[in-house]
Structures are given as structure tokens and as C-alpha cells.
Design a protein around this nucleic acid. Structure first.
Lengths: 189, 189
DNA sequence: TAAAAATGTTGCGCTATGTCAACGATTTGA
DNA sequence: TCAAATCGTTGACATAGCGCAACATTTTTA
């Protein structure tokens, strides 16, 4: 099993070395080039992804053509369209590499089989859902009603790396402001 | 066990009548008057609530004093500050009745004990987290970048009752617009 | 049930931020 | 490696929606 994934499990749950190793075969490692799509809007999401290195984003495009990014998955994070994975319905969002990335993929049915049969995976899944829930709730509370400056400061406090690591266009689509406004705000900081 | 809660379980999981009945003693029934608080910001949330009748809202107040509502719990829904319940940290949000309400409460430790020991409750909890996650994700996608008119239409499509059942002030705090703007938009619909 | 408090409506001015345009800088891929 | 494409920056302009105020209406509670 990849050491990054092993670490992920060890930090979040108790599981014997032996049973942890039994999980390894379910994860397949791939590398993807920058801008590669792991999922396109309209497809049914069939995998849960674990980012070994690089970075993913999950985003959708609205009717006016504006991109809306809701999640960045950096090294050591899981990322998938849970909405599609859970419901088996076509995703309304896409998953894309923002850098050359090394990714471990676990097939949907394998993943949910493990959630049902391996307590450690059940606990991990619960942990992922709980964290994702808390994060999104906080995001709504913090950003709803906040002006652009507050949004950028919010990002700087929470995820200071993002602003330097990713392009303005991508960051703006995450903050819900235009790249023009973001550019102006950065100039004043 | 209250028939509304029984129905909730039966619609979402398989469990024998007998074991379902064994869960009943963990839930205590109370009625609260309109505007009563079940949780105030800063307190640690100790209960998960199930709404038998009436309506709860979960909201916070930002530094400027603007209220921000993130969830309405109507009849047949669970509602709690999961962030506080999970982390055992003080809540940054409050839970308030918007109508005279009948509520079933289950104590935090009892609830998580059942999550660990009763597969049906584990499944229910997973289901709640999954649904909450999907709902919040969609909310972010749908509302971020949307103007006030789009927000009101979004509400009318998804939760048409809310607009007639709750006050403009409350609805506006859910949509992230001012009551003034909401009033003007309603006049034009 | 009546007084008080809260909420809804609407006019007005202001400001933040979106849109468009032009151009320089950076990135990308053949 | 270099041409083409994308992205960043900045000015000018337009406008959605906020804040305030004043008054009407509804709701609350004593």
C-alpha cells in the first residue's frame, strides 16, 4: 500500500497492519498530466480518488458558462463526486488535475463493499463525510454575505498556499468572485 | 416510538420491529414555544433533534450582526449542529424554533453509541451525512454567483413552501440577500 | 384586546463589483 | 524553442443590490 495512503488510515482509525495490507489491491495507481479530466460533467462517477501528489479540483459550469470550483484535493486527500458516487446518477460536476498528479483510484463498488465490511473503512468514510460536511457548512457561513476582500482574507487564513500555488482564474472560481476583482485585491494586499 | 420517527427509520433502513422499539427509550419528547432556542452559539451541542411538528432553523450571526441561516428542519427531519456534536467544541451556530414545535431529543453519547453498535443507526447516520453533504454542495454550486432573482427562483423550485411559511427576514437570511431585496423581488413575481 | 414590537414595502442615493477592452506577461504544446 | 493560446493587470463604465428612512401592516404579548 502506498505510504501516503497508509498514513491517511493510521492517522484516522485503528487497523492491523495485516488488514490494512489487504486493502492495498483495491487501489490502482496512475499518473495524469496537467489539465487531465478524471470525470466529466454528465458521466457517472465510478471511482474514489486519493491524491498522492499534485492537485485536483472539482468544479461545475453554470448556464452562463461561469466555472464554479467547490473543492481542491491536494496531496494526502480523497476527492470524488460523492453526489454521483452515492446516487449512481450522472455528475453535475467535473474532476480535473490542476498539476501533473499521481492518483490512487478505488472502484465505487469495491469502496462501498469495504465501507460495509471493513470497520476501518466505514470509520474513514464517516470521517470523510463528517469533515466534508463541516467544511462546507463553514464555507457557507463564512462566505455568504462576505465581500470580495473578506473572501480573499478568508482564503489566506485558511489555505494560504492556494493563492500562490493556483492561478487567479481558478482561485476566483473557488471564491465566487471574478478574476478581475481578485487581481485588484491582490494588488492592494 | 413516535410514529414519525418509526417512519423515518423504515424509509431509510431495514430493522426489526423489536430492535426499533429498543431505540425508543433514547428519544425524549418535548414541546417548545415559538422562538425558543435549543442551542445558543458558544454552547456545546449535546443532542440530536428530530422534528415531529413545527420547524427549526440553524443560523449564525456574523461580526456585522447579520444573521445567516443554513438549514431549516421541518417535520420528519433531524437537525443538530453536527459540527459541534462531532467535535464536542462550542457551536458557532444557534438552533431556534420558528414555530411551536414538538421535538424528540437523543443525547449525543447515546446517539454515537448507537451509531457504533446498531447497524441501522449507523446506516441512518451515513444517510444523513450523505444527504447533508449533497444538499450543501448543491447549494454552493447553485447559489454562488447567482443574483437575487435566481436565488428566489431556486428556492421556489426546490422548497416552494418555505416562502409562504416563513417570514421574509428569515428567508432572506437563508438566501443571502436583504429582506428589502426579497420584498422587491416577491412584488415582481 | 390593545399597546408595543417586529416585519413588510418602497423611494433614494451610494458603492462594490461585474463587464468590456486593451495590452503585457506567462504558459503551453507542437 | 517558438508561435499561439491563455492568463493577469488595469482603466472606464454600468448596475445590482445594500443601507437608510419613513410609513404601513402584521404579529406578539401583557
Amino acid at each position: 500500500m502506498h505510504p501516503k495512503l497508509k498514513l491517511y488510515f493510521e492517522e484516522r482509525t485503528h487497523i492491523s497492519e495485516e488488514r490494512l495490507m489487504a486493502l492495498a489491491p483495491f487501489f490502482r495507481e496512475n499518473t495524469f498530466r496537467k489539465y487531465a479530466f478524471l470525470l466529466r460533467e454528465g458521466e457517472v462517477c465510478k471511482y474514489n480518488y486519493f491524491v498522492v501528489s499534485g492537485c485536483l479540483r472539482i468544479f461545475s459550469v453554470n448556464l452562463e458558462g461561469t466555472e464554479n470550483t467547490r473543492y481542491f484535493g491536494f496531496e494526502g486527500k480523497f476527492a470524488t463526486s460523492f453526489t454521483s458516487l452515492i446516487s449512481r446518477q450522472p455528475a453535475f460536476e467535473s474532476i480535473q488535475c490542476l498539476e501533473k498528479s499521481t492518483i490512487l483510484s478505488i472502484y465505487r463498488d469495491d469502496f462501498y463493499h469495504l465501507v460495509e465490511t471493513e470497520p476501518a473503512v466505514n470509520a474513514i468514510y464517516r470521517n470523510i463525510l463528517e469533515s466534508a460536511y463541516i467544511t462546507t457548512q463553514k464555507r457557507i457561513y463564512d462566505l455568504q454575505g462576505a465581500d470580495s476582500l473578506q473572501r480573499v482574507k478568508w482564503l489566506l487564513e485558511r489555505y494560504p498556499d492556494i493563492l500562490s500555488r493556483l492561478s487567479n482564474k481558478i482561485v476566483a472560481s473557488y471564491l465566487g468572485i471574478t478574476p478581475y476583482t481578485l487581481s485588484r485585491i491582490k494588488a492592494k494586499l
